[in-house]
Structures are given as structure tokens and as C-alpha cells.
Design a protein around this nucleic acid. Structure first.
Length: 402
RNA sequence: GCGUCGGUGGUAGAGUGGUCAAUUACAACAGACUGUAAAUCUGUCGCCUUCGGGCUACGAAGGUUCAAAUCCUUCCCGGCGCA
């Protein structure tokens, strides 16, 4: 159901540019996948998402399962039609919530660890997700009710949500998890991957959806490579008539080694399947990940940061809530072609943020998404024209210099 | 004019003899955010500091006390009631 074509490879690296054909349209890769967790890109209408040139929207199984329920979304014809998005779609499996509502809940831990903030943080009573071999027991963050997610139930829910591309149910581990735990978890995620393949094959007899397996292994080379080998080997066989159509690379990283860790994996994964780096979306990380062979990225950062007033510019991020912007009547970025920069000044945005006006979130999200979508498009163009290295160098020099 | 209640840090508003440079909220000033628990969270928020502390502060001025934002006196200002 999914056709991946490589158009061009960048010599000496794992990078490639290509296309992914889905029944809802073609994706030019590398591509940034816009996150619409609850079948909405926060603060934006579907029309605005289209205007931004977004190619794919990714929704979340855990969130839509809880509200409004997978059955409701199925009745709507899938989450795409439900939200009036008619292009390619993806759903995440709920595996990330094993982390965000589990080990990370109430802790100052994110999936990308910075510096040496990788000390052990033990499980605590308040967390809302508990992982066992059977699946993940969630306590709803909405009403406290309990829900067991298993590889099978995730496949069933994702089937109802109806995305073109879906992910196997995995355990997203914490960067604070020690080797022993990562190893144990990896074995579990592998077993779950097999269960996902089996259940998905039963559900999707007409091959409507493409299933991506998820590579874990934390920050450990040995585990990452083992995961890539074992998951890569889960191709179409008698046991698994379909095999995986692509791969997600998930879990935790250290800020400095995203490219490295991703490279370990992509050097091993089958070259002819698309690779999606889950939850990564800051400029430097995108360059590193493309160079290390990734084709797709999704990230909440552009929209969340936008809502919090943090805006991308070619010269780095700025915080629109800062006093200096109150009377700055220039656009966020001179020359930016996004709607916001074409029509509004920093002073106006600063005013909207200070007044807690909803429009601040919308206008800021438009700018940040435009910025990241264009960035990944430009990266793709630079691959096709063999100018990746200079583009990367020029962009990052300017973006990171203060 | 008499009576009465009240005047606290940018604002609102706690505190009513020591543990008060003064709860809290908002505002302000910065920071964080990477498969969305997030229009969220964190820090700072009188002045100075060698971070031990020092100094000035709760309408003003006096006073009581070892000790006052807290008690007393007078004054100034505001609300309300009666004239």
C-alpha cells in the first residue's frame, strides 16, 4: 500500500531523498510530519495546515482512544476526514505515553537528555503508566480510569483511526533507564512487534495501512544495533505475511549523539524502507538525522514552543515575551514568507502574548511550522542538488551563533 | 463638625507584639520545552553584599516595649453613617 522510492543518495553519508506514495498522496522526503495529537494541530485549522504546505499529519492513538474514542473516529471515516485533513496520515501507537505518563510523569526528564542529567530516577507512585510484558496499564490523565494497552489493542485502535501509516506498540524508555532495563525493555518491544505484525495482518486484509516497527535501545550502541538487526529481519515471512513497511526510531537520546545513535541503526536497517525518527524536530537534530539516513520526522516542538512564545529565526530562537519586543515593529523574521510575517509585527505578537490572546498561539504556530517545514524542504533540495554540506554548515553557523 | 471603619511592597489583598523584608495571587523580568499530562512549567521579583549578613521599609510624626506592620497619642488621607 506504500511505495517508497529513493531518488538520490548523498555520497559518504546515509542520507537520501525520495518519495513515499500513499493512497492519500505523495510525500517528498525527507519530510517533517506535523503533529496533530488529538486530530487537531493545536490552534490551527485544517485550512491553515494545508496553507503551510504540510505533507503529513500524525495523530495519537492513546489520546484519540480516550477522547472521543476510536469508534467515534472510525464512524467519522478516520482521523483525517474527521479533522478535514485529506493528505497522508500517521498515528503513533501510544508507546510514547508509556514514557511520558510513566517514567517521565512528574519528573524533569525528557526524551532528549542534556548534559549529564542522566541519573537514575526511580518509579514513583504518581505515575499514570505501568509497563508489563502484557502491555501498558494506563490511568487516564483525563478521569483516572484504567486502560490496558497491548500490542493487539493498539493495532485495533489504529485500525479504527485509519491512518495510512501506523506504528507498532513499543515501550519508549527513559534516558535515565540503565542498560539492564533497556535490554529487558528491548526484548519486550521486540515481542510486541511480532504481536503487532500478527494482529495487524488479521485486521488489514486489504493492506490499507502500512505498519512501521520501532527501534529502541536507548543510548547503547550494542542494543540499538541489535534492535535494528532483529526488527529489520522481521520481513515478510510465513509467520508474518506482511512484515514491516517502514521503521520508526524511538526512545531516548543524549543531545550530542542523536545523529550517531541514529546512524548505528540506519546502517543496519533495510535501505528500501522509509525511516521515521520519532519526536525529533530541532534544526540541528534534523540535519544530523537526515545525514544519518532518516526520511521522516515528527515533533511537537515547533507548535509547543510557538504557544510558549519561542520563535525560530535564521539567527536562532527568540522569545516574543521579552520586553525588547514590545515596540519592535518588524516581522519575526524579515524576508519570511509565512502568513504571520507577511501581516504582523513582533510588537503585535508580543501584545497578543501578554494579553493571553488565542491568536498569539495561532500566529506563532504558523511561523514555527512554516520555518521547520521549509527547513526540511530545503534540506531535501540540498540533497537533490548536492549542496547538503554547505547548506548545513551555513544554516547552523548562523542559527547557533549568538 | 461628630461618630465609625480603614490606609501594607507595581496592583489586589493576607498578617494584627517576637518564628516578618512581610503568606498568596496577578503584573513585571528571565529561562526551560524534541513520538503533546503542556495557551505549560521553573527561577527572580525593597536596596547593598566578600552570600555570613548589613541597611531602609507596612500613610506621617512621636511614644510604650528587650522587641512594633501589629499597642498608645497626634496629624494627614479615604469609605460609610449622623448632622
Amino acid at each position: 500500500m506504500l511505495k517508497f522510492t529513493i531518488q538520490k543518495k548523498l555520497e559518504g553519508t546515509l542520507a537520501r531523498a525520495g518519495t513515499i506514495e500513499t493512497k492519500n498522496g505523495v510525500i517528498q522526503t525527507p519530510a517533517f510530519v506535523t503533529v496533530g495529537t488529538k486530530a487537531t494541530v493545536k490552534s490551527l485549522t485544517a485550512e491553515q495546515i494545508r496553507s503551510l504546505g504540510a505533507q503529513v499529519v500524525l495523530a495519537n492513538t492513546y489520546h484519540l482512544y480516550l477522547q472521543p474514542g476510536a469508534d467515534v473516529v472510525e464512524q467519522a471515516g478516520g482521523f483525517g476526514p474527521f479533522m478535514d485533513w485529506h493528505g497522508p496520515t500517521m498515528t503513533d501507537s501510544g508507546g510514547f505515553q508509556a514514557f511520558s505518563l510513566g517514567a517521565a510523569f512528574g519528573n524533569a526528564v525528557s526524551k532528549v537528555a542534556t548534559g549529564d542529567a542522566v541519573e537514575n530516577i526511580s518509579a514513583h507512585a504518581g505515575q499514570l503508566a505501568k509497563v508489563t510484558d502484557e502491555g501498558v496499564m494506563f490511568k487516564s490523565h483525563l478521569d483516572g480510569s484504567k486502560h490496558l494497552f497491548t500490542p493487539e489493542s493498539s493495532m485495533e485502535a489504529q485500525w479504527k483511526l485509519g491512518a495510512d501509516m501506523i506504528f507498532a506498540f513499543d515501550e519508549c524508555t527513559s534516558p535515565t533507564a540503565p542498560y539492564e532495563y533497556q535490554k529487558k525493555s528491548l526484548a519486550r518491544t521486540y515481542a510486541w512487534a511480532q504481536r503487532c505484525l500478527t494482529r495487524h495482518a488479521e485486521l488489514d486484509v486489504d493492506k490499507q495501512q502500512s505498519l512501521f516497527g520501532v527501534i529502541q535501545g536507548g543510548r547503547f550502541q550494542e542494543l540499538r544495533e541489535e534492535a535494528a538487526r532483529s526488527m529489520g529481519a522481521l520481513a515478510a515471512t510465513a509467520d508474518f505475511p506482511e512484515g514491516f513497511d517502514g521503521y520508526g526510531i524511538g526512545g531516548s537520546f543524549t543531545k550530542d549523539d542523536i545523529g550517531t545513535a541514529v546512524g548505528w541503526v540506519n546502517a543496519i536497517l533495510p535501505e528500501d524502507k522509509p525511516r521515521h525518527l520519532l519526536g525529533i524536530g530541532e534544526p540541528a537534530d534534523l540535519f544530523a538525522a537526515v545525514e544519518a539516513g532518516c526520511d521522516l520526522f515528527d515533533c511537537i516542538a515547533p507548535t509547543r514552543m510557538a504557544r510558549h512564545g519561542s520563535l525560530h529565526t535564521a539567527d536562532g530562537r527568540i522569545n516574543l515575551r521579552n520586553a525588547k519586543f514590545v515596540t519592535d515593529f518588524t516581522p519575526i523574521e524579515v524576508g519570511c514568507t509565512c502568513y504571520t510575517c507577511q501581516h504582523h509585527t513582533k510588537a503585535y505578537l508580543a501584545h497578543l502574548f501578554r494579553g493571553d490572546e488565542m491568536t498569539a498561539a495561532t500566529l506563532a504556530s504558523i511561523h514555527n511550522l512554516h520555518f521547520i517545514l521549509r527547513l526540511v524542504e530545503n534540506i531535501r533540495e540540498s540533497l537533490l542538488s548536492d549542496t547538503f554540506h554547505t547548506y548545513k554548515k551555513d544554516f547552523l553557523e548562523r542559527y547557533t551563533k549568538k
